[in-house]
């Protein structure tokens, strides 16, 4: 709590700076793509949020495992705090994808494997949070959501492959892997990486804020309980 309190303003500040810098660079200082025109610039929102959407779930999985194995109380709250942020990222990725898809593919929505996977991921986030909110006892809620997160991860992964099997889609192949930079020119690549870092830090900052809020609310509950018992 002390540590996170000291780090939080810095993380938030750096996140804000990198985000502004990355997005500004991306939006105004890069040339238009020769085929896609200026619409390509939405990539600076789309790709980092999509990345964070997946990382958010991964973070929840790790936190859930830590809670189940080590019973570390904060980790359960981290998982709880990460869920809405991750869900928002998924939503932004889906929305920007739709906005980008309209001029590129001529449609707002296509049942492309990646789009579909993200929609399914969104449903998983929804169910996970609904379970948190439905259970009154925080300890029970932490246990049950952790189990759901682990089982859900397995099925989310399965869904990913099932969807690939179901429909080969419109998305371009992995053009952003680290070793094959020739696909995307450095002019686009550098601001994109900055944006990814920015969104990563923003994600971290938001999760930290939410976790601190959760911890404070739990502390408040504990104090109230003690007051009532005394």
């Amino acid at each position: 709590m002390h540590l996170s309190g000291r780090f939080l303003p810095w993380v938030a500040a750096i996140a804000a700076i990198t985000l502004v810098a990355g997005l500004f660079w991306g939006f105004f200082l890069t040339p238009d793509d020769y085929r896609q025109g200026s619409t390509v610039k939405i990539i600076y929102l789309h790709v980092p949020t999509a990345l964070m959407a997946i990382n958010g779930w991964f973070m929840m999985l790790v936190a859930s495992l830590i809670w189940l194995i080590r019973r570390h109380h904060v980790s359960a709250l981290v998982a709880k705090a990460a869920a809405p942020v991750g869900m928002t990222m998924t939503l932004i990725a889906l929305a920007t994808g739709a906005i980008w898809g309209e001029p590129m593919w001529g449609t707002w929505w296509a049942w492309d494997p990646r789009l579909t996977s993200f929609l399914i991921l969104f449903l998983f986030y929804l169910g996970y949070q609904a379970l948190w909110h439905a259970i009154d006892d925080p300890d029970t809620a932490a246990d049950l959501t952790s189990v759901l997160c682990i089982v859900g991860s397995v099925f989310a992964l399965l869904s990913r492959y099932a969807v690939l099997f179901w429909n080969q889609g419109l998305h371009q192949g992995a053009s952003l892997s680290l070793d094959s930079q020739q696909h995307v020119d450095n002019v686009f690549w550098v601001p994109l990486v900055i944006c990814m870092c920015g969104f990563g830090l923003a994600f971290l900052a938001l999760v930290l804020v939410r976790t601190r809020t959760e911890i404070r609310s739990r502390r408040l509950q504990a104090l109230l309980l003690r007051e009532r018992m005394a």
Binding site: R71, H73, P138, D139, A142, I215, R218, R219, Q221, A222, L223, L225, R226
Partner: peptide
Amino acid sequence: PDGFDEAFL
């Protein structure tokens, strides 16, 4: 000693 809420005090 190891209740959920008390851990936050």
